[in-house]
Simulated scan of single mutants.
Amino acid sequence: MKFLAASAFAIGLSLAAMTASQAMPLAPLDQAASADTIRVAGGCGPGWHRGPYGGCRPMYNCPPGWHSGPFGRHCFRNW
């Protein structure tokens, strides 16, 4: 009987705590983007992209049949 009362009290307390918490309040959907915000690709800026380890790398366009090498500085022929 004690276990049933204790578990009922714990469940009731947790349900009461869940209804009172507001960890993530809802934001209105009609907010427009701020004019002072500059959009960039992945935080690196125009002409750059994120590499495999999260660093910023320049975007080089190699011709067909070639690929960019380490750090995107040179173009190497595909084998």
Rank of each mutant, 00 (worst) to 15 (best):
G55C: 06
G45Y: 08
C44A: 13
D36R: 04
A35D: 15
P52N: 14
V40M: 14
F71Y: 12
T37G: 10
R39V: 15
F71D: 15
G12H: 03
G51P: 01
G45N: 08
P63S: 06
G43W: 00
A27M: 15
M59T: 10
C75F: 07
F9D: 04
Q31G: 07
G45F: 03
G55E: 15
A27S: 12
G51L: 06
C75K: 00
G51F: 03
M59G: 06
G42D: 14
G72K: 08
S34D: 15
V40N: 06
L4Y: 03
G47C: 11
G45W: 09
S14T: 04
A41Y: 07
P46Q: 15
N61V: 11
C75S: 01
A17I: 08
A16Y: 02
W66K: 01
F76T: 00
P52Q: 09
C75A: 00
N61Y: 05
A41R: 09
W79V: 12
P28W: 00
C62Q: 08
D30G: 10
P25S: 07
G54A: 14
A16Q: 07
A8H: 00
Y53P: 04
M24A: 10
C62I: 07
P52E: 07
P70W: 01
N78D: 15
P46Y: 14
R73K: 06
A5M: 07
A35T: 09
M18P: 00
A27K: 08
F71H: 13
C56L: 13
G43N: 04
G65L: 04
A32G: 10
P70M: 05
R77T: 12
G65V: 01
A16D: 04
G45I: 05
A23L: 14
M1C: 07
S14Y: 05
P28K: 10
C62G: 06
S21F: 04
G43A: 13
P25Y: 06
R73H: 05
A41E: 15
P63F: 08
S14P: 00
M24V: 10
H67T: 07
F9Q: 05
C56T: 13
M59F: 06
P64D: 13
Y60V: 13
P46W: 02
P70G: 03
G69E: 11
R50V: 14
A16G: 12
A32F: 09
L26Q: 07
S14W: 06
N61C: 12
M1I: 01
H74W: 11
P64R: 08
P70C: 03
T37C: 14
A10I: 05
R50C: 11
R73Y: 02
H49D: 14
G69Q: 03
G43P: 03
A17K: 03
D36A: 12
I38K: 12
A16H: 02
Y53S: 13
A27Y: 02
N78K: 04
H74A: 12
M59H: 12
L13H: 00
A8G: 11
G42P: 02
A35G: 13
R77F: 04
S21Q: 12
L15T: 14
A5G: 01
A8I: 13
C75M: 08
Q31I: 14
M59S: 09
I38D: 10
M59V: 15
F3W: 09
C62P: 05
L15K: 01
M18F: 15
A6D: 04
F9I: 08
G45T: 05
S14H: 02
G47W: 04
